[in-house]
């Protein structure tokens, strides 16, 4: 994938300061995370087997959950849809191996690494900030590490993935909305003093 000097991310510091560092929450872009949309039927044994063989772990079949293994993760997005994430530049290799293994099956792999960027939000106030604009019930009784959901934050569509109990969240957002969402987060965090 091209020369890294040719890369730009929607929230590149050069084009879009400031970083969001506050006393009880911080957020930062995780640019260029590898992302593949994997489509196939969870009712089909071969599809699940082949996916597990390539990924090294089973695709999550429980709605709105995430399976993680090392730097690979699979987020349940719908009954026949997952998003496989990986470290930057590994996606092409995974995609190719998936495609090869799935030949002859009704399945599809689409590279969307550039179709979304990731904002990581972490800190004791992270949940409060999300509650300013997200209709999901994020209470620890309802939404825990390993859960994901497609929903909205303010006026942007997002995929939300809770990483740990800090709490830390990854927000997946389309690059065209990233600056809007970043500005919204900076504004929402304003009541938590800057560190």
């Amino acid at each position: 994938m091209a020369d890294r000097t040719q890369w730009g991310s929607p929230l590149d510091a050069a084009s879009w300061p400031p970083r969001g560092i506050f006393a009880t929450v911080r957020f930062e872009e995780r640019p260029f995370v590898g992302k593949l949309i994997l489509r196939g039927s969870a009712d089909t044994r071969e599809f699940l087997d082949v996916s597990r063989a390539v990924l090294g772990f089973a695709l999550p079949t429980t709605a709105n959950t995430v399976a993680v293994d090392g730097d690979l993760a699979a987020l349940w997005l719908g009954p026949r849809e997952w998003m496989v994430t990986t470290t930057p530049e590994r996606e092409a290799d995974i995609a190719e191996r998936l495609c090869r293994a799935l030949v002859g099956q009704h399945a599809a792999v689409t590279d969307v690494s550039d179709g979304r960027t990731v904002i990581r939000l972490a800190g004791p106030s992270a949940r409060d900030i999300l509650m300013k604009g997200c209709p999901l019930d994020l209470h620890p009784r309802e939404f825990v590490p390993g859960r994901c959901a497609q929903s909205q934050l303010a006026r942007a569509q997002i995929i939300l993935h809770q990483i740990d109990e800090t709490p830390t969240y990854d927000l997946y957002v389309a690059p065209s909305f990233a600056r809007y969402l970043w500005a919204w987060l900076v504004d929402a965090a304003a009541e938590y003093a800057i560190a």
Binding site: G8, P10, R155, A156, P175, S176, F177, Y180, L181, W184
Partner: peptide, 18 residues
């Protein structure tokens, strides 16, 4: 609430916007 000014509605931009 905060749905005012630049946050009133998302402004979508392309990678070439700057």
């Amino acid at each position: 609430g905060r749905d005012i000014d630049a946050l009133a509605d998302p402004i979508r931009v392309t990678p070439m916007h700057d």
